[in-house]
Amino acid sequence: MDTPSDFNFLNQSVAEKHNPYQEGEYLVIKTYPREKYLRCVHRSFDYHTARNKRDLENLAHDYSSFGLRIFHQGKLYQVIDNGKPGKISKQQDWKIHPDYRDAHYDQNAEGEIIVCDCSYPYFSALVSYSSLRDDPIVESQPVTCLVDDNGRETDNCPNCGSQLVDDDVEEDYEDEDCVPVACEGCSNYHGQVYNGSLLVCAIHPHGSDSESCPDFTK
């Protein structure tokens, strides 16, 4: 038995949202601000109609941008002047795995879906591990969250290659030759490099001036 919701699909704009994109179809999509899912505001097989729709959307919105793409060989491509596919688009119709989508909206979950500058979604999860001094460390680790590629740890965006991990902490000075004599065995010792400079500890950022430290703590 048909319901009022079923009759909504008689409206072309409603039905199009549920139909898969077809080869050669022009899409007017929102390119900024970036969202977790592709927002398509217009679909057409006519290049000039789609181009005019893109121009109207950009005139009507002050804080959003819209671009014209063509669906070609299962991917979105930018469109050149004659309506043919140009280079591949950074924005694609990403399919996020349901488990990560649910975790994103779960307030008790320690992680969320983040969108790269190119529109690629990834899941920023909190991971715990121990340092060489057995100190607990908790930090964010990006993992892929698409239906066909999920749970894989990555430091760079699989789509555009940009770095996803903050690289301020460059290395851990655990080598005994690098630890100042006054700091050996001190629980205050930090010994990590930030922007090329070693942070010895919070009390003496550049280390003690002598071979003994007045703030040495076991």
Rank of each mutant, 00 (worst) to 15 (best):
M1T: 07
R39N: 11
G67Y: 07
D117G: 13
F45P: 03
H18K: 13
R51W: 09
V41Y: 10
T154F: 05
D2H: 05
V115C: 12
L199C: 13
S187H: 00
E184Y: 01
Q107L: 11
Q107Y: 12
I80F: 02
A125K: 14
R51H: 12
Q73A: 14
A60G: 09
S197D: 12
C118A: 00
D168Q: 06
C116R: 03
P158I: 06
H48P: 00
C157L: 08
D93C: 12
K75P: 00
N195S: 09
Y105Q: 11
Y122P: 08
D167L: 07
S5G: 04
P33D: 01
Q92P: 01
P121N: 02
Y173N: 14
L164A: 09
A202G: 05
I96P: 05
D167R: 07
R133T: 13
G185Q: 02
I96E: 04
L164N: 08
G161Q: 08
R152Q: 10
E170M: 07
I137K: 10
L198D: 00
I114V: 15
G74T: 05
S124Y: 01
R39V: 12
D149M: 10
V143W: 00
L10I: 06
V127A: 10
H204K: 04
T31R: 10
L68R: 06
R152C: 02
K87C: 10
H48Q: 15
